[in-house]
Write a protein that binds this DNA or RNA. Structure first.
Lengths: 207, 207, 207, 207
DNA sequence: TATGAATGAGTGTTCATTCAT
DNA sequence: CATGAATGAACACTCATTCAT
């Protein structure tokens, strides 16, 4: 492999390894993942991995951090700047299939589920930094919708959870079933259906 | 350990091992699970495991089979004998929290997610024997509800999926977050909320 | 290798491994010593080593302990029961060549010297439990000889050290030079000479 | 690091590396010594080491040679020009503590003991070039003393060895115990005591 | 049947050495 | 000459599996 002498080149190399690592951890879980495989996937030698990451565990932790954090911020800002519940819901219905299909979020989720007991601290932090923040932003969005009279519900928190549930469902589905099966879930239709059900379910009762 | 001379005693021993194995696989995933630990949990020696199961993998497969199959049948029959959509939905809302909290289903799900790539055949079979059958039963129930005029929807399949999504969501939540955290999700309230939203979302429009 | 089912058989196996380990550590030092080699020397597999010792370091520490401690006690008792300086000195002159040639003490000393920096705690303990105790016993013996009028010296402590010096000298010589060279040091003649010089050097001056 | 363009500058660089190497080999033994550490101690990069020494082993060998040889010559000349046994003995008693405390000889000795089996050729050469030459010079000095009537002994060779023994003893002591302990041996007193004992022990009997 | 001592293939990690810059 | 990123052989340690007791 070529030398990475500049800082930029080294960052690139880090990225390659993180990418390769995520794939390997995703496919095999932490303990079955082999540093050898990660090296091969990244196109470097095993020794090189240790120039960039202190250990398999350190690589794992860095991967989780690198992939998870940016995503939340994106979603958070999306919901905070919300201009009305329905328009945001609409935007979400279009964005979420992309998040599930294109981003690394489902892969990270799969890895974290599989190795939850091995890394309780990571799971806790992920819950706080990703799940709770997402849930809070969504709850606020629901409450604002209520206050604006757009929607009605007595239980904003659970509504927020139920809005998320299909994301989790389809993320799991995607990573667990689709790699070994031909039929792909039609996420657009699923989220479309979900959006319509939500709109009807949350519609304020006529007086 | 006492000898298990009768068939009944041998079956009991098998049960103990399967139970111990599920716990170990659940907590560590397939590859980190140690036969030593399973033996200790089951109160037998390592050698004994191999009298009942040919290998770690055979034990794993047997566990999945032993735990998963019976559950589906229960759920299937529950929905097939359905006496009206709403009454069945009501029953489900009460039963599902128990399924999530009391049964081994979430544990098995967690294991299968974590080791999906190591056992594609198992995953495929699980999908066909558990998920698809459950989804089909649910879809039929939705369709019957439509035909009976109780509810209305254009997309029974996705409605069925969205009815299941919170089960997956809470199953994952339960096994991933709750073991390392104090706050437990209030499943009753969650499924209550879900039921009400479904009822409103599926209510046939007034003409 | 045969199974070691009884406690006695296990102790024997431990002894074999300790013996093999000492040889390997002696010949290569701690860090070059290979567990594989130790296993081969002991006639067991690598895995078996770890049934008896938690790690390479634990094996090392146990070896030092197993070999060093008993020796001191022997020497200490020899000098404490001393019936007169000259008779004890005579006994020592006969015993020490055996200690140097037959026992494991010089091997352990060589190992400790080579790995002194890697195991400062061991070195300190060895100094306290072996060296200091030996030196103290010898000093007392010299003082008693003075009080009994057999010998005379103003500096019992250094005399004790100088009595020991040839032991260290010949121990080092034996383990460092003799394995790679034909000529063996004539320890009997050396200690004989040393004894005579000591007798003359310590003889009280005629009035 | 600056380039070393002149021959003198290159020799200096060599010296730095040799010095750094001795410290590292002394502290960790050959196989635990890391080229990385040596480079850091010498203030150069790892690659530079290989510009001056072909390999770790070559560096090791050069260090032994560089440090050991000069010392012998010094000692040899000291004893050969001897102007009488007692005056030389006196001089030795004063010089030896310095040799033990100030020079690199004890460090080299420690390294050679620790890695004796890995470098039998070095050990043999060291024995021949350093030990044997020293022993021969000392034996000659004793014999001359006898012939001159200053002293008397039947066994000049072992007397020479016993004259050396405390040097070995204190060298070992210094490098093994003192780095990890506060109490330092009082070498002056020790050699003083030794000198006095030798003088008395070797004194010709009155007729 | 039940045990647990023994095995050895497999994996994370280190580090002497190389060589592009 | 000097650097330090890259390499891969080597080694400590683990654990599923076997089998003598």
């Amino acid at each position: 492999m070529k030398r990475a002498n500049s800082e930029a080149a080294k960052d690139l190399r880090r990225e390659q390894i993180i990418h390769a690592g995520l794939d390997e951890f995703f496919e095999r879980g932490f303990s079955s993942a082999k540093m050898d495989n990660i090296a091969r996937r990244a196109g470097v030698s095993k020794g090189t991995l240790y120039l960039y990451f202190a250990s398999k565990e350190a690589l794992f932790l860095d991967i989780i951090k690198a992939v998870a954090i940016p995503r939340v911020e994106m979603m958070e800002s999306m919901m905070v700047q919300s201009s009305g519940f329905f328009s945001t819901l609409n935007m979400l219905s279009q964005q979420l299939p992309l998040l599930v299909r294109q981003s690394s979020v489902p892969k990270v989720a799969k890895v974290l589920i599989g190795d939850a007991f091995a890394f309780p601290a990571v799971v806790r932090e992920y819950r706080q930094q990703v799940i709770e923040r997402g849930h809070r932003a969504l709850t606020i969005m629901v409450r604002k919708g209520c206050e604006a009279g757009e929607i009605h519900t007595e239980d904003a928190e659970n509504v927020a959870r139920l809005m998320i549930a299909p994301v989790i469902f389809s993320a799991i589905w995607t990573v667990v079933f689709e790699p070994h099966d031909d039929e792909a879930l039609d996420l657009q239709a699923l989220f479309q259906c979900h959006q319509q059900m939500l709109m009807k379910a949350l519609r304020p009762e006529a007086p």
